[in-house]
Each structure stands twice: as structure tokens, then as C-alpha cells.
């Protein structure tokens, strides 16, 4: 697979095309940052307003599942970074293995998250009638818990779809390893990872210090 096969229309050089893919993704991630920033600002406002209710509510989240998932996700980012570097270096088998590992760890994260959600539902931690905690403001904490982790999980699903597509394309040799898509997918994956690194202390460690 030569570089010319990966060159697409408006570009005159592959280097510029790679720059564009990465640059475009960085701009998109700027947008994503603002997306989460909106919810995190609201979280910060309510945490400042109802500090005690928030710390009490945060103690109800499952620190075991949360910590396990943090470890899984950080490892998956390592695999993704290795995959992107391997693709850039043209190492086909290494790329395929690392992409596969990334997908496996991503699925493991979602599975653990599913177990956690099931436990949360059993403990009546869904806001609304029959909520486990008496303090109504604790419901706001769990509103953010469900919303933020849900939106994060949705990002994980999209990331898994992208990585799986790349894996299949690379495996069938339909996408050259020189394609900037591997690096771009890596950037997105790391971003989703970083979001979790912000969510983990806000949702699991608050009130446990």
C-alpha cells in the first residue's frame, strides 16, 4: 500500500492530509470539551449550592466498579496509542492486535458499567418516586450521575464503532496503514478517556475524601 492510495481530493500531499485529519479532530474535540463543560458547570453550581447533599449522595455510588473501570479505560488508551503508532510505522499485525485489544477493553468497560447500572437500579438510585435518599437535592446529584455517565457511555459506543470499522478495514486491507484515520481515532479515544478521568473524582470520590 503506497501513500498515494490514501491521498484524497482537495489535498496535494499526504502530509497535509494527515495534518488536516488531526487538526479537524482537535477542533472537534474543542467542541466536545464545551459540550461536557456545559454539564460540568451545572454540576459545579449545584455542588456549591448543596454541598452536603452532594457528598452524601456521592457516597452511594459504587467505588469498586468506578475504580475498576478507570483502570480498564486507561489500559485501553495505552492499546489505542500503540495501535496508532504501529499503523504509522506500517506494522500491520501489531496494529490489528492493538485495535482488537482496544475494542475488548472498551467492551469490558461497558460491561462493568452495565453491572454498575443494574446495582444502582436495585438500590433505587434513579431520581423520581421511590428514590433511596430522603434529601430531594440528592436527586440532582444522581441526575448528573446518570446523565454524565450515560453520555460518556454513548461516546464509548461511538468510539468502539469507529475503532471496529478501522479494524475491519485494516484487516481486509481496504484502508492503508498510512491513513490518518488511525491517529484521529486515537485522539477521539483518548478524549473519551480524559472525560472519564474528570467524571471519576466528581462522581465517585466526592464525599469519600
Amino acid at each position: 500500500m503506497s501513500g498515494a492510495a490514501a491521498l484524497r481530493k482537495p489535498y496535494r500531499s499526504l502530509r497535509r492530509q494527515r495534518e488536516a485529519a488531526e487538526f479537524g479532530l482537535w477542533v472537534f474535540l474543542g467542541s466536545e470539551v464545551m459540550f461536557f463543560a456545559g454539564a460540568l458547570t451545572a454540576y459545579a453550581v449545584y455542588r456549591a449550592l448543596w454541598a452536603e447533599a452532594f457528598t452524601a449522595a456521592a457516597r452511594e455510588t459504587s467505588i469498586f466498579y468506578g475504580t475498576l473501570n478507570t483502570a480498564i479505560l486507561l489500559t485501553s488508551s495505552l492499546a489505542m496509542a500503540a495501535a496508532a503508532e504501529a499503523a504509522r510505522a506500517g506494522l500491520r499485525r501489531m496494529t490489528l492486535r492493538c485495535l482488537g485489544l482496544t475494542i475488548a477493553l472498551g467492551l469490558a468497560f461497558l460491561a462493568v458499567k452495565g453491572l454498575e447500572y443494574r446495582e444502582d437500579i436495585q438500590k433505587h438510585l434513579v431520581p423520581g418516586n421511590g428514590f433511596a435518599l430522603a434529601e430531594p437535592k440528592a436527586q440532582i446529584f444522581f441526575a448528573f450521575y446518570w446523565l454524565l455517565t450515560g453520555v460518556h457511555a454513548l461516546h464509548m459506543v461511538i468510539g468502539l464503532g469507529v475503532v471496529a470499522t478501522l479494524l475491519v478495514q485494516a484487516w481486509r486491507r481496504r484502508r492503508p496503514l498510512a491513513s490518518p484515520a488511525f491517529e484521529a481515532a486515537g485522539l477521539y479515544w483518548h478524549f473519551v478517556d480524559i472525560v472519564w478521568i474528570v467524571l471519576y473524582p466528581l462522581l465517585y470520590l466526592a464525599g469519600r475524601a
Partner: peptide, 19 residues
């Protein structure tokens, strides 16, 4: 994206009763 998030919050509150 900030509008997207605030609409999502509205949507969640109206559709699922999440406060």
C-alpha cells in the same frame, strides 16, 4: 455544544423526570 447539552438537560428533565 453548550446549547446541545442544555437541550439534553431539558430533554432528560421533561422526558424522564430527572431533576
Amino acid at each position: 455544544p453548550v446549547l446541545a447539552m442544555v437541550l439534553l438537560l431539558i430533554f432528560a428533565e421533561r422526558a424522564f423526570g430527572i431533576p
